[in-house]
Design a protein around this nucleic acid. Structure first.
Length: 204
DNA sequence: AGCACGATTAACT
DNA sequence: GTTAATCGTGCTC
């Protein structure tokens, strides 16, 4: 299936976050394909967005968001979790889309091994859960999502209609001031509209 | 050098 | 609903 071109990511984080719904995240892990349908995203854009890491300006951690679109921004948080983002917008515009949830398509056996004892519906229904399932960590920070010879990319997959899409406040921004705390920059697919039993505990 | 806190998760009550 | 786990990052001293 066709890999999303760099032009796809060279747009505003809001547009990319919405359009990534229904696309397929693919990870080539030791030669084995793992993939899933993207069903939840969040947009983070600009130094003015106090929910975005770029609020601190250019730092060793945030510099990737200032770079070319179509690269992975992977960061570590809470002392134990990895998060995967896709860098958006042009050079010097710090913005990215957080991939919060996918529905597994390929590599189920590999995911099952990494998520032993966890119900299938909860394998990849959170940003850190999908990173654990897909074996995503710091080694993929800065990876080119548009390189067909790479280890991670996003394929065309499907498109989600407006009627099947929801928007709402981003999750986990407890101490972030308004309007950033409540601005509806989170996008997700209505459970059931996508052909899967997966649920997300963060759904209203 | 030290400190507060985090784009979370899982296991509790 | 509440909370411990656990350490990189950015800021202050």
């Amino acid at each position: 299936m066709e890999i999303l071109p760099r032009e796809f990511y060279n747009r505003s984080a809001l547009t990319v976050a919405r359009d990534l719904l229904g696309k397929h995240l693919v990870r080539l892990d030791d030669g084995r394909r793992i993939s899933g349908v993207i069903v939840e995203t969040e947009a983070y854009q600009g130094e003015d967005d106090l929910g975005c890491h770029a609020r601190a300006g250019r730092t060793p951690r945030t510099q990737i968001m200032y770079g070319a679109p179509g690269h992975a921004y992977v960061y570590f948080t809470y002392g134990m979790h990895w998060m995967l983002n896709a860098v958006t917008d042009g050079l010097d515009v710090p913005a990215a889309v957080l991939l919060r949830a996918v529905i597994p398509l390929e590599g189920m056996d590999i995911i099952a091994g990494r998520r032993a004892g966890v119900p299938r519906a909860q394998w990849t229904d959170g940003p850190a859960k999908l990173c654990k399932s897909f074996n995503i960590d710091r080694t993929l920070n800065g990876a080119d999502l548009c390189d067909p010879a790479g280890e991670i990319w996003i394929e065309m997959g499907g498109t989600i209609s407006d009627s099947a899409m929801h928007t709402g406040a981003r999750i986990g921004l407890y101490s972030v001031p308004e309007p950033w705390k409540s601005i509806p920059w989170r996008f997700w697919v209505t459970p059931g509209e996508i052909n899967s039993p997966a649920q997300n505990r963060n759904e209203p």
